[in-house]
Nucleic acid binder design. Structure first.
Length: 507
RNA sequence: GGCGCGUUGGUCAAUCGGCUAAGACGCCUCCCUUUCACGGAGGAAUGACGGGUUCGAUUCCCGUACGUGCUACCA
């Protein structure tokens, strides 16, 4: 059997961690079986549709290295891939369901529904559902005659199509992750299949499209489990049950500090991104930060997500994409949700920064260099030299600048406070005279500079330990960075002397 | 409220009836390093609770508790 999987996001906002992970597991499963990964866009809610969101999703997938084989832009054998462009299809199958008695027209207004939910409420806490116990009290094609129904439709009365849930049926569902489950059909309400605006709801669209696009395995978040029986019933009622995909309901990604699904607002609140890339909402003008922009390497991001809900049992945590494809197994995906841990996410990125080759890393760092120094105003060869010296101190891509800016530019901020209270005339004299010695040096390399320093320390009868930190502060501006003599060697004699003199004058 | 799903350290988690319960992140101590890191060596910290089944339960079953999801003309 040829494997076909799909991801069907609604273009209503950024792509969050759970979404990317769903794509990832889809992708890994498909690639492991030589299958096809389909992207279709679920733009079925005109009120919530946000222009640009579709392209954003496509860009995110590309950044993550998870580009689909078939998509609205790429095309494929099942065009169109946008649900808004497949409207007639849904109408056709909705009519088929009505004809076979599994669905019906409903003309109730929102006010009618609200009244029903209030008047017929089952108990204090729970409003009534539109289901077998209430549907015969509403205005729909089950209570109206055919002629009345037809007249209402002809006269342009807004209507929806609802599924007629059976009264006493136990729906069985076999899930690749959750195992066998069963649901009582009477517990679900008569879900709307076709909305008054003519668009399908998710329930109809997912079944029709999965069938038409020959999807064999359907991955989605566990929040869909309660409506899965509706979908199973639709597969059955449409006569396609033998072609129903195998389901896999993925565990949820939860808030780090406790309760609930991770949401966009948690990122703002806790100081980390929840979207793959920056999302600029054109409707609200609100900007939500992404993992790409704060300096994650895409492979690290994807690796981190892969481990949030799955492992191969060996204890290995760093996997390349080909390794993930060959080792991923749906049986080892957890059932329980996982709290997202930003520290662990950063650890993954740190690991990738250490193992990545310098040239590739420099390419990823270049945009941040452009941002700080201006495009063309910095030297790539210097960056290539500097990266191996500082990368172990770097967790995210912009840390390269934070940890190495002094190689490119005289530090603007000098942490004088770190040395000021122990400063004295003797030290002042030491550096003044040593600068003169340095000026006369012929060679300019790390051992030469350090030897000169040591010799000068001895001549002044001072302690090297008292002078190393001041020298560092002069060159770097703060208490961090690689060996001071290596820094001096790299920035050059002129720049070293300049930094010593500037700081001496300021102390 | 109803229904579904889940529950091993603070977090991610291994274990598929034999446990002195792996490993990772984070935290702490020490070593290395005349800075900050990296690295190395240690440490604290876990089976929700109550019943069964069994020679033996973290593991299987049943309750309870807790968590979480759904309960829309949102997905």
């Amino acid at each position: 059997m040829k494997v076909r999987v799909r991801f069907a996001p609604s273009p209503t906002g950024g792509l969050h961690l759970g979404g990317v992970r769903t794509v990832l597991y889809n992708y890994l499963f498909a690639k492991a079986h030589g299958g096809t990964f389909v992207l279709r866009i679920e733009d079925t809610d005109q009120n919530r549709y946000v222009p640009g969101a579709e392209q954003y999703i496509i860009d995110c997938l590309e950044w993550c290295g998870l580009s689909p084989d078939e998509s609205p832009v790429k095309g494929g054998p099942h065009t169109p891939y946008r649900q808004s462009e497949r409207k007639e299809l849904y109408h056709k199958y909705a009519k088929q369901l009505i004809a076979s008695g599994h669905a019906y027209y409903a003309f109730d207004t929102p006010e009618d529904l609200e009244k029903m939910r209030h008047d017929l409420r089952k108990d204090e806490h729970t409003p009534a559902q539109y289901d077998s116990s209430t549907r015969m009290k509403m205005r729909n094609s089950l209570t109206l005659s055919d002629a009345e129904t037809w007249e209402l439709i002809e006269s342009g009365t807004p209507y929806v199509v609802r599924i007629k849930m059976p009264e006493n049926v136990t729906v069985h569902l076999s899930d690749m992750i959750c195992g066998d489950m069963s649901f009582e059909s009477s517990l679900s309400d008569d879900k709307v299949l076709l909305k008054a605006d003519g668009m399908p709801t998710y329930h109809l669209a997912v079944v029709v499209d999965d069938h038409l696009m020959e999807i064999t395995h359907a991955f989605r978040g566990q929040e869909w489990l309660p409506s899965a029986p509706v979908h199973v019933l639709l597969w059955e009622y449409l006569g396609w049950k033998d072609k129903m995909p195998r389901w896999a309901h993925l565990p949820l990604i939860l808030k780090p500090d406790g309760n609930g699904k991770l949401s966009k607002r948690d990122g703002d609140r806790l100081g980390f991104p929840v979207f793959a890339m920056n999302w600029n909402d054109p409707k609200t003008g609100e900007l939500t930060s992404g993992f790409r922009e704060i300096g994650f390497i895409p492979q690290a991001f994807v690796n981190m997500l892969a481990m949030l809900g799955w492992n191969d049992g060996s204890g290995q945590e760093i996997f390349s994409m080909p390794e993930l494809i060959s080792k991923f197994s749906i049986e080892r995906v957890h059932k329980g949700g996982a709290k997202f841990d930003f520290d662990k996410a950063k650890w993954f990125n740190h690991q990738y920064m250490q193992q990545m080759d310098t040239a590739a890393l420099a390419q990823l760092v270049a945009p941040y260099m452009d941002k700080e120094m201006g495009p063309g105003n910095w030297d790539m060869n210097t960056l290539l030299t500097v990266i191996p010296m500082i990368k172990e101190r770097c967790t995210l891509l912009p840390d390269v600048w934070a940890q190495g800016h002094f190689f490119f530019r005289t530090p603007e901020l000098i942490e004088k406070a770190a040395i000021a209270d122990k400063w004295n005339d003797q030290k002042q004299l030491f550096f003044t005279t040593w600068a003169d010695v340095l000026a006369t040096l012929d060679a300019w390399d790390e051992p030469t500079i350090e030897a000169s320093f040591n010799e000068h320390v001895q001549q002044h009868g001072m302690k090297k330990g008292d002078l190393m930190l001041p020298f560092r502060i002069m060159l770097v501006g703060g208490k961090y960075g690689p060996g001071v003599f290596a820094i001096a060697a790299l920035i050059g004699k002129g720049e070293t002397l300049k930094r010593i003199q500037v700081t001496l004058a300021a102390l």
